[in-house]
């Protein structure tokens, strides 16, 4: 009787196959990340192992890949372009998204709060090419008129655009971080007679610090990797910026603008893929750090792993 019942029946095999298939799905994420690195590396390899000089790449502002007699591949100006735009974007986005997160998380209630969250979510949905279009055709004339600048496509323009783009995700992550602070902390502080604002300043913000750092890091990552908006709104001039009204060119925009006009396999082509590897490594590092902070631990402290439902209590 028992022996007869203890057969590996069809449902047992179906279950095994399903398990293997979903595991493959899970592993695919790793395969893709590794694949991105390998395939971009494969295209850029020729340059990295021959013409590439890390010193020139990081320290020279001369990006003249199409020069006939002496092409140079200094990415300093591009890095400076990306950094200046991202930096200005953070100046815009950090205070405003933190403020918005505090308002949504700590002050707004009920329907108002839900509405604001939905609006923030819709902000995040606007495609970057539309932002670029806004920078080009709305912000550009606006900056020219307001600041009496000769051209409106510059660090200021793309920084503001990028700040508005990065703000929704930063607001969402920051609000999550504030929400994760246990209510018992707030109640304990309120029981001692602290006002709402004192509770936020003295209790909630310090307790949510890691999440807020993560939100900022993700915002930086977003700004660093944004392509279309920066391509269209930054003026696209290889330039070490000295003022917000200077035109710059970002790493991402350089790839987007030049790849289409480059012969496959040429040194220039390989150099563009090398820029891609550089971008990949930097954003990977930023995202990794953000993840460490989201998990609530500075490196060294034990990580609080997200447990799957299958092992969590109901």
């Amino acid at each position: 009787m028992n022996a007869a019942a203890d057969r590996r029946d069809l449902s047992w095999w179906v279950d095994k196959v399903a398990q293997i298939l979903v595991l493959a799905g899970g592993l695919s994420a790793i395969v893709f990340i590794v694949g991105i690195f390998l395939f971009i590396g494969r295209e850029g390899a020729g340059f990295i192992f021959e013409g590439f000089s890390l010193r020139e790449f990081l320290l020279s502002p001369r990006w003249t890949p199409t020069s006939n007699h002496n092409p140079t591949f200094g990415a300093l100006a591009l890095i400076a372009g990306t950094a200046s735009v991202t930096g200005l974007a953070m100046v815009v986005a950090v205070p405003f998204s933190l403020g918005a997160a505090i308002y949504i998380g700590e002050f707004a209630t009920g329907r108002g709060r839900e509405t604001l969250k939905v609006l923030v979510e819709l902000l995040a949905a606007i495609p970057s090419v539309v932002w670029g279009f806004v920078g080009l055709s709305i912000m550009n004339p606006l900056i020219v008129r307001v600041f009496d600048a000769p051209v409106g496509l510059n660090v200021l323009n793309s920084g503001i655009i990028l700040g508005l783009m990065a703000a929704p995700i930063m607001t969402t992550i920051a609000e999550d971080a504030l929400k994760a602070v246990p209510d018992t902390y707030r109640e304990a502080a309120e029981a001692m007679g602290a006002t709402r604002w004192q509770v936020i300043l003295k209790v909630v913000l310090p307790a949510g610090r890691n999440g807020l750092v993560a939100a900022t890091l993700l915002g930086v990552g977003r700004g660093f990797g944004e392509t279309m908006a920066v391509l269209m709104a930054s003026g696209h001039a290889v330039n070490l910026p000295t003022s917000p009204f200077d035109a710059v060119r970002a790493l991402t925009a350089t790839i987007a603008a030049e790849l289409g006009e480059t012969a496959e396999g040429s040194e220039h082509w390989q150099a563009l893929f090398t820029l891609g590897i550089f971008l990949f490594l930097v954003t990977f590092t930023i995202n990794f750090l953000a993840d460490v902070f989201v998990r609530g631990g500075l490196p060294g402290r034990r990580r609080r792993g997200r447990r799957p439902v299958a092992s969590a209590n109901p």
Binding site: D6, R7, R8, W12
Partner: peptide, 9 residues
């Protein structure tokens, strides 16, 4: 049991 599901049934 090779098939724990059969046991649980």
């Amino acid at each position: 049991w090779r098939n724990a599901y059969a046991l649980r049934r």
